[in-house]
C-alpha cells in the first residue's frame, strides 16, 4: 500500500513537470489527463470511491476532450 502510493506519487509529479514543459500542446494535455487518472487511483487508495469515480470520468475524459478541441481550434505547439 505504502510502496504503491510512493510509486504513483513519483509518477504523478514527473507527469506534471512534463505537462508544463512539453512544447507540443497536445502532448502536454495528454500528460495532464494522465495526472488526473493517477490522482483518481490515489483517491481510491485513500478510501474515497465516489470522488475517484468522479475524477476518472470528468477529469480524465471530459476535461481532456475539451482541452483537445480547444488546442485543435488554435495553435498546436508553443513557441
Amino acid at each position: 500500500m505504502i510502496l504503491v502510493s510512493w510509486i504513483l506519487i513519483v509518477l504523478m509529479i514527473g507527469l506534471a513537470v512534463l505537462s508544463i514543459e512539453l512544447k507540443n500542446l497536445i502532448a502536454a494535455v495528454v500528460a495532464m489527463g494522465a495526472v488526473s487518472l493517477i490522482i483518481s487511483l490515489l483517491f481510491l487508495l485513500l478510501q474515497a470511491p465516489d470522488v475517484a469515480m468522479a475524477e476518472a470520468s470528468i477529469g480524465a475524459a471530459l476535461t481532456m476532450a475539451i482541452y483537445i478541441i480547444g488546442v485543435r481550434e488554435t495553435e498546436r505547439s508553443e513557441k
Binding site: 465516489d50 469515480m53 468522479a54 470528468i58 471530459l62
Partner: peptide, 14 residues
C-alpha cells in the same frame, strides 16, 4: 453504492 448523479451524468456525457 459509490457513485451518484455527478458521476453517472458525466459518464453519459462521455
Amino acid at each position: 453504492t459509490p457513485g451518484g448523479g455527478f458521476q453517472g451524468g458525466s459518464i453519459i456525457a462521455s
